[in-house]
């Protein structure tokens, strides 16, 4: 709460900041990342592929198809889902920033390449799927979660966020009603009915 901080903000009030932010595209935000945080071409390709493996193309687009990889890069750089929080008791070899937070993208790249015994992206599709499925299964063990949760949990949460808040994921894979206009407290649920991405309380409480 310093005088200097105030001066920096005086000319950019909350309203102005919002108006400016709403005009900024995610692509520009991504391009604006410092070099140390900007994804390399390989990271971008890897996050796109991993997103697509989690949510593949069916009768609607997959997560990689709709730019979820780029969203995850932006989200990791800005620390969404607490991904910039310092990690206590991080296992040896985890790629940490100077502030003790984990470079999730580097961790994912190393982990998958290690499990693939080489270039994960060069493995055949079925093998990529199997390798990621194994990583996922270990991250969500039966029983209580481990003391240091797998970084994959946060990456996966960001992939889901990126996909289901995209227009394709939010309004084609799921249903999106901006203005329902009425409240039906009890209607029949039929097989094949899709959930609402615009049920904000459900999104909040999961």
């Amino acid at each position: 709460m310093t005088e200097q901080a105030w001066n920096r903000r005086t000319f950019l009030g909350a309203a102005t900041a919002l108006a400016a932010a709403l005009g900024v595209s995610p692509a520009r935000l991504l391009a604006g990342l410092p070099a140390s945080e900007a994804p390399t071409a390989r990271h971008s390709a890897l996050l796109r592929e991993v997103s697509q493996l989690v949510i593949p193309r069916t009768d609607t687009a997959g997560a990689g198809d709709v730019g979820t990889g780029a969203f995850v890069s932006l989200a990791l750089a800005h620390g969404l889902k607490d991904t910039r929080a310092p990690i206590k008791d991080a296992p040896a070899g985890w790629p940490l920033r100077a502030d003790g937070s984990l470079r999730h993208d580097l961790w994912l790249e190393r982990t998958l390449d290690q499990r693939a015994g080489g270039d994960f992206l060069a493995r055949p599709p079925a093998q990529r799927h199997a390798l990621l499925a194994a990583l996922d299964a270990e991250a969500f063990p039966a029983g209580p979660p481990p003391a240091v949760p797998s970084p994959w949990r946060a990456i996966k949460a960001l992939i889901l966020t990126g996909y289901y808040t995209s227009e394709e994921g939010g309004s084609k894979e799921l249903r999106y009603e901006a203005v329902p206009g009425r409240w039906d407290p009890d209607i029949a649920l039929h097989k094949g009915d899709r959930a609402f991405s615009s049920d904000w309380t459900a999104v909040d409480f999961g």
């Binding site: 593949p56 069916t58 894979e173 799921l174 094949g192 609402f196 999104v203 999961g206």
Partner: peptide
């Protein structure tokens, strides 16, 4: 009723997982 965010607490990837998250 839960929606897609329940998936952040669940294991699973791929088509079956996507189908699972499609339903309320």
């Amino acid at each position: 009723q839960s929606t897609w965010t329940q998936g952040t607490r669940e294991g699973g990837i791929g088509v079956a997982y996507k189908d699972h998250l499609r339903a309320p």
